[in-house]
Structure formats: C-alpha cells, structure tokens
Write a protein that binds this DNA or RNA. Structure first.
Lengths: 150, 150
DNA sequence: GGCGAATATTTGATATATCAAAATTTTATT
DNA sequence: AATAAAATTTTGATATATCAAATATTCGCC
C-alpha cells in the first residue's frame, strides 16, 4: 500500500504551521514584556517607528512594503502614533499627496529606553539556537517569501 | 573599535523580521489562490475547519490552542462558519457550557475540492527548499515557540 | 443540598489586516 | 492649458487579534 497521493498530512506537520506558531508565540511574549516594562505601545507601532528611524523621509507606500503591511494598515497605525504623540504628520513641501512623518523626541526617548527590553526578548527567544541555524532559517524563509511573490 | 553593545541591528537583519515576512507572504499568496479558484473562505476559517476535521469532538479552548488563536477569535470565526453553513453548533449533551461543533457536508465537500489548491500552494512556496532545510527550520521554530512560552 | 471556586464560552472595546473604492494631487499627452 | 492617466493616501466594510470583563454552567467541599 504505497500511495503517494493518499498521504495524510496533519496541520502540525506543515512548515507553515510552525512558522505561524513561532511568530505568534514571539509576538505574544514580546508584547507582554513591553507592557510589563511600562511601555504603552504595540509591536506593530514599534515596528513602524523603528522603520521610520532607519529610513527617514520614506514615503508611506515604501514604509508599508518594508513592514509587510498594506497602505491602509499603515495609515491607521500612523494615526494612532500621531494621536499618542510619537509622530508628527505634515504635508510634503513639493508633493502634496505625500506626508512628512517626523519622529518626536518622546518617541526617540522611548525607543532608546526600550532597547534593552527588545534585546532581551530576542535573546530569550533564541536561546539554544545556533548562529548557523539562524542563518539557515533566514535563508529558507527569504526563499519562501520570494516564491510567494507571484 | 570593537564594541559589542554598539552594534546596530537593522530590522531586516533580525530573524523575526524574516519569519513575519515569510508567513505574511505565504498567507497573501495562498489566500489569493483560494479566492481565484472560487472558494469563498479565509485562511483562518479553513484552518479552524481543518483542525476540527482532524480532531472531532474537540472543545473550543483546545481548538484555539491548536490554531494559536485565543478563545475570542475562535468564537467569532466559528460564528462566521456557522453563518456560512460550514458548521453546526449545538450544546453539549452532558456539559452545557460546551458546544458541539459539527462539520456540514458542504464543508466536507469544499475541503476535499480545496486539497489540490492547498497542495499547490505549499509546493510552490517551498520550491528550491530541501527536505533537510525544512526539518531544520521546523526544529528551530519549535524551539523559538518553546522559548517564548514563558 | 448549598456555596464558592473553577471551567467554558461569549461579549465589549480597541488594534490590525485586507480589499475595493474614493479623494486628492501630480504627471503625461496633446 | 485642458484632460486623461498615474500616483499617494485615506476611507469603508468586514475579518481577525487581544485583553478584560461578563455569563453560564459545573465541580469541590463543607
């Protein structure tokens, strides 16, 4: 009885299931640590802020691509960041369709004091994982993302 | 100039960034294929249905854990599955706190005809990825999930 | 047998995801 | 210069994520 097509694959055997589980576990853990250390910000808001720090002057569309979100989500996350005093939004001088996004001092300070927490989160999540394995995982996941582009 | 703590890590260098990117890319791709093949269901709804098929009689709490969602999300996904005629919800005979979740024929048939699409999605997403690499990725991601349990 | 603790699910409030459509502004073409 | 096409962001509608609180039921214990 060797029937290739009849092989039953259970959810838990599928690599995408592992990927989903890992990222959700990490996000839950990281978010909890952030809150417990007194920072009132979501992971996604932090991600957008951090991307802006690393790429000042970027337009929202490119920002969205960078954090794997669509424009609508980014608009709304930015709304909240502005509401909470982490960002300032002004119209672009030469292209009025765009917006200038400026990080406030409040945000800069917060990001700075969050660094140890972020570092600890990553360190704990990667306990017992070798550098070689990390490289392998990154390479494979990049390949998967590439394969799904079309 | 060798200062360990001063190393700047960019978002794109972080493994969690790769994990996020991979799962989002796959989900987008898979969802698009599902729609384009005429199936009117979300990935998450499919996931819940599939978990129910593999674990008949499971209670919602365990179901939630199995698909890495919280109880509230599962309740609402089930609401939609019932509304759309894929599930039937009845009260448990001996414990009226619980609900019996029964998959309708409509759902069974749909899951069956979705199989080729799901298989193709996985095959395409994993193109050029070796079996050994898949095993490594799964092992590492399980470790990460384990590390984040507390 | 009654009462408090524990269990299972739902609901409310807010944040994010996704798609399509709308609104605004710029660019290209003639 | 007028107009259509393209680019950028926002809005609307619906689905999912998360946490806390509410509901309903069962269990443990006296």
């Amino acid at each position: 009885m060797s029937n290739k097509t009849a092989v039953q694959s259970r959810l838990s055997d599928v690599i995408f299931y592992s990927i989903d589980k890992a990222i959700r576990s990490y996000r839950q853990y990281a978010q909890k640590q952030i809150r417990e250390n007194g920072f009132d910000i979501t992971i996604d808001q932090w991600l957008v802020l951090q991307a802006l720090v690393e790429n000042p002057g970027i337009k929202q569309q490119d920002l969205a691509e960078m954090v794997f979100k669509d424009n609508a989500s980014v608009t709304r996350i930015i709304d909240l960041l502005v509401t909470n005093g982490f960002l300032e939004r002004t119209v672009h001088a030469t292209d009025r369709r765009k917006t200038n996004l400026t990080i406030t001092n409040k945000a800069v300070n917060m990001l700075e004091s969050m660094k140890p927490v972020i570092a600890a989160n990553r360190r704990i999540a990667l306990k017992e994982v070798s550098a070689a394995d990390i490289q392998t995982v990154k390479r494979v996941l990049e390949q998967i993302a590439e394969n799904c582009k079309r």
